[in-house]
């Protein structure tokens, strides 16, 4: 499916994605990923955070416990999303359209110490 998207849209947005607060455990202990995300989704819409989350689930999340990251089609409640260090609630949440060199940080508050 991702191959189709790549063919349809040869342009990519370079972004950095980080995981912390225990979330890195779901992503093969990778705390930081440099990704190139298709600029547009398969419907031609600009890639936004919702698209990124989908992308992460399909291409980067190897752990079978996907529900620890995504629940009911959105980031699991209790996981904070920071877009360039700002709470995604200030940026339009999932509708925020990715810009070049954006830094998207997912922090879990669900893990203990």
């Amino acid at each position: 499916m991702s191959a189709e998207v790549e063919e349809a849209s040869p342009e990519y947005v370079p972004i950095t994605v980080e995981f912390s607060g225990g979330l890195e455990m779901l992503f093969s202990n990778e705390r930081k990923l440099s990704l190139s995300i298709p600029r547009r989704d398969k419907d031609g819409q600009k890639a936004n955070v919702a698209f990124l989350i989908d992308y992460l689930c399909q291409d980067c999340l190897k752990d079978p416990r996907k529900d620890l990251f995504v629940l009911d089609g959105s980031v699991r409640p209790g996981i904070l999303v920071l877009i360039n260090d700002a709470d995604w609630e200030l940026e339009g949440e999932e509708k925020y359209e990715l810009q070049d060199n954006d830094n998207i940080l997912f922090v879990s508050t669900l893990h203990g110490g």
């Binding site: 225990g22 904070l80 920071l82 260090d85 922090v107 879990s108 508050t109 893990h111 203990g112």
Partner: peptide
């Protein structure tokens, strides 16, 4: 909890998360 995590993040505190 959200603000605790954000405080730790913005102050760059050294903490460990595990389950």
């Amino acid at each position: 909890e959200k603000e605790i995590v954000l405080y730790a993040h913005h102050k760059k505190l050294d903490y460990f998360s595990t389950e």
